[in-house]
Amino acid sequence: MLTSARNNQLLRSAFTLGKGDKLLQDNQKAIVKEVFWTHGITQREISSRTKIPQQTVSRLVNSLVEDGLIHSVSDSGKPSSGLEPNPDFAYCYGLSVLLDAISIALMNLKGEVVATKHVELDDMGIASVLSKAASEVESMSTKFNIDSARILGIGVGISGFFSSTDGRMNTHHAIEEWADINIADTVAEAFNLPSWVVNDGTGAAAGEGIAGVGRKYKNFVYFFVSSAFGGGLINNGDMIRGTHGNAGELGDMLPAKLYSHPNLQLLERILLKHGVEVPSMYRLNEVFDPNWPGVDEWIYKVQDSFDLVATASSALLDSQAIIIGGHIPTKLAEKVIPRIDVYAQFRRGAKRPMPEIVCAGVTECPVAVGAATLPIRDWFL
């Protein structure tokens, strides 16, 4: 979400393409979108999918190749007619503001994660977070020799919900200072880059759709399991934002007095009761043992919650997949998935098509990775 006059000014001036064009024209953008989603696509396939005449496709592709935005795919050293984005043409950063830490991700134009960094902080105030984030971004840019002129912008993922359509958020109490400010504007000023803001669940879903197993599915529901339980929705490859940007607040489907929320704080409490001390939930994936005492108890407590949300998601959205992600350990997700029961009416010997339920592919800094996709999504997709 772009907000504020300052941010829009940065958007207009941040990046020039090839021969000085500020933004892609509609047909160019349609071509780049097809190339991004289908690496190795041919001009004939682009013309068929976009309904742009092949002669026009050929002319525009030649221009985009000349500008360096896309290039031909090589097959075992032999030239090919297939196309893909030029990964070095542009880069994006993603910043995740967590409850007691930040994460940074660097992504290239091909949608590949170049680097991630997780940093725990004692002070989650605005000045502390932005100072550390700026230092990490500068360090990454130096390490990977990223030209500042090639940076499209920085996306931000943060825990909370949007209060209105002006981009202000009601954030988690642990990051109180970030509440009710224009986050996009604040981050844009700090980095002198255009900034986009989403809540953490939507951000993680956006990242999974580009850099994870979600890329296989045009439509999926993402279960964000972290300190709290939320989610994100992807339809036809695009984020569903809703009226205010709060679509995918799956935790609000579960009245707390009736259902145990499937979050990692509950898991940590149960494990501690059984004598198992775990590190930060952001490192839990590295050490998790599915045979720890207390794991089955957590699954038992949250089973009905998973069933309800999965059933509602399937019934409402008819998605191809439900992806279990966030900061949940992969081995725990693998143990949960076979037990999730998606209800559907049985008629004439069959149920309606059910979504696949799978583990997320992005396990390192998922919110930051998702935030890094936001400039690409806005500029090119």
Rank of each mutant, 00 (worst) to 15 (best):
G214Q: 12
P279S: 09
F229R: 01
D289I: 00
Y259S: 04
G230L: 04
G275R: 09
L250Q: 03
F224N: 13
Q320K: 09
A211K: 04
P290R: 13
I299K: 02
G212I: 07
H274M: 02
L267C: 06
I299L: 04
G212A: 09
I324Y: 00
P290V: 14
I240E: 11
D318E: 14
E297W: 02
N246S: 10
D238M: 13
E277I: 09
S226G: 15
G231I: 02
L264V: 04
V225A: 08
G251N: 11
L233N: 05
M253L: 15
N291S: 13
W298S: 01
L264P: 05
E268W: 01
D307A: 05
F306W: 15
G212K: 07
W298R: 02
I240L: 15
P279N: 09
P290Q: 09
V221E: 09
P255S: 06
V276C: 04
D318N: 15
S260D: 12
P255R: 01
L258T: 13
R215V: 00
I323H: 04
G237T: 07
K301Q: 15
Y217W: 12
L264I: 04
V213C: 03
D252A: 11
E249C: 06
E277D: 12
G212T: 07
P262V: 01
G275A: 07
G248M: 12
M281Y: 14
I322H: 01
V225H: 08
S227T: 14
S226N: 13
V287G: 04
L250S: 01
P329V: 05
P279F: 14
T330K: 15
H244A: 10
K273P: 00
G230A: 08
D307V: 02
A312F: 06
H261K: 14
F306V: 02
Y222H: 13
A211Y: 05
G325T: 05
G232C: 07
